[in-house]
């Protein structure tokens, strides 16, 4: 089975597609050039000093040790503080999204005070509209990081951290947990899709509401398996089994591009493999393997889930 990770978009902070990432990118370039020059000059001075045979002067220490560093740090402080204020400025009209880190996946609720649309492991953002992410953690500390759009912010149990971001380019981007959180840490990723504002509104509209009805008999069988095999103890499918929050919401799982928090390309086969033995596909996954499901049951439930778009 192919890993889906490679098909995702950029994870580089050198190709910014958001306001925070753009500031960080500009600072990176400016500091790399400025401090690069400082480095070359210091090395050149060492080479000169190596050949010289003369008495040093006190002003060398003054200029190299105090004046130049002081100038550099004041410039850096000024630039950084301005960028920081611009990045973190609160917007009253911002879209609010709650993101909660779990070992090892992401629970996402759009507009929690309004429509409260729950989804998981895939973040969809409108282009050019400020978004306020309210970050929580369920178990241990995680860190929310989409390098191409914004710098990271930790998700700490018992706290709500705010990350303000604005995506400036449509497309696919990859995010990943940046705080070591246990065995599944390297496989706790997610995909970010940035849509035009109109497309985003349509998407949100379509994602809310109850799950698609099971249209064919095999899908109905699958839904029955979902209800009887114990899946609903952890997972929610709106309109079918509600209230469980231990695992990701599955109402629109078929519409996601990936499975296992940005791990595998979404397909019925991948879903079946995951249900049978999630830990084989993702070490550290909390979901137990359902090896006891018969072949037809597994086929039915995976087909049902894949149909939930």
């Amino acid at each position: 089975m192919d890993s889906a990770l490679g098909i995702f978009g950029s994870q580089s902070w050198l190709r910014p597609a958001g306001i925070g990432a753009a500031s960080a990118h500009d600072l990176t370039v400016a500091m790399a050039i400025g401090l690069g020059v400082v480095f070359v000059v210091v090395m050149a001075l060492i080479a000169l000093a190596w050949r010289a045979d003369t008495a040093p002067r006190g002003w060398w220490i003054w200029s190299g040790g105090v004046i130049v560093p002081l100038g550099a740090i004041l410039l850096i402080l000024l630039g950084s503080t301005m960028a920081l204020l611009a990045m973190t400025r609160a917007h009253d009209d911002a879209l609010v999204i709650d993101v909660t880190g779990h070992q090892f996946w992401w629970d996402i609720v759009y507009d929690p005070e309004g429509a409260a649309v729950r989804d998981a492991n895939e973040l969809v953002l409108p282009k050019d509209r400020p978004v306020t992410l309210r970050l929580h953690a369920e178990d241990v500390i995680h860190s929310f990081w989409v390098p191409s759009i914004s710098g990271k912010m930790d998700m700490v149990p018992g706290r709500t951290n705010i990350l303000t971001l604005t995506a400036t380019r449509t497309g696919l981007f990859r995010g990943q947990c940046a705080e070591f959180c246990g065995v599944g840490h390297p496989r706790m990723a997610f995909e970010v899709r940035v849509l035009d504002p109109g497309a985003f509104d349509d998407w949100l509209e379509q994602t809310g509401g109850e799950a698609r009805k099971a249209a064919r008999p095999d899908l109905q069988d699958g839904r029955e398996v979902f209800e009887t095999a114990g899946c609903a103890a952890c997972h929610e499918i709106r309109g079918v089994a509600e209230g469980a929050r231990m695992g990701p919401d599955l109402t629109r799982i078929g519409a996601r591009r990936s499975l296992g928090a940005g791990m595998w390309r979404m397909s019925q086969g991948a879903l079946a493999g995951w249900i049978a033995d999630a830990r084989a596909m993702k070490p550290g996954a909390q979901m137990p393997g359902y090896t006891q499901l018969s072949g037809p049951d597994l086929r039915a439930v995976s087909a049902y889930l894949a149909s939930l778009k």
């Binding site: 925070g20 090395m43 950084s80 503080t81 920081l84 710098g151």
Partner: peptide, 27 residues
């Protein structure tokens, strides 16, 4: 030491910049 430490010290100054650090931290 002079070569490596000066370079490391300069990247340290970069890391003191908050917006840069929010990207570079834990990377």
């Amino acid at each position: 030491f002079l070569f490596i430490f000066v370079l490391g010290g300069l990247t340290g100054v970069m890391l003191a910049s908050v917006p840069f650090n929010l990207q570079a931290h834990d990377s």
